[in-house]
Amino acid sequence: MNSKRGSGSLRGYVHGILDPARLVELVDHCDVVVEARGTFCPEPVIRMQNAAALMSPGQVAMVVADDAGIEIDLPAWCISTRNEYLGVLREERFLRAFIRRAPARTADQD
């Protein structure tokens, strides 16, 4: 019954899969903007979660927040829900984090 897991800390997952130049392009071209400035954990993730429920596979959301913790919570949420974490842009007073909605899961994926 032992299913050993990697002991790496999730702090290592915060980078995302796109480089900053690609993320900058997405600022004006994302499908959904999730505004979460002025809110704190777990509200930004709740807003992302609610938005994700209405998004189609492949669509990109940009979460705008000033709770720095989203830099580790959103990647964790993406790993757990199998969405794609694209990365984060740090502005002076807030962050923009990008997520791509995962394709619908099929029977073979489980």
Partner: peptide, 12 residues
């Protein structure tokens, strides 16, 4: 930043 432990556990 402090993390949300439930999300972290889910990811793990």
């Amino acid at each position: 930043p402090y993390r949300n432990d439930a999300l972290h556990a889910g990811a793990q």
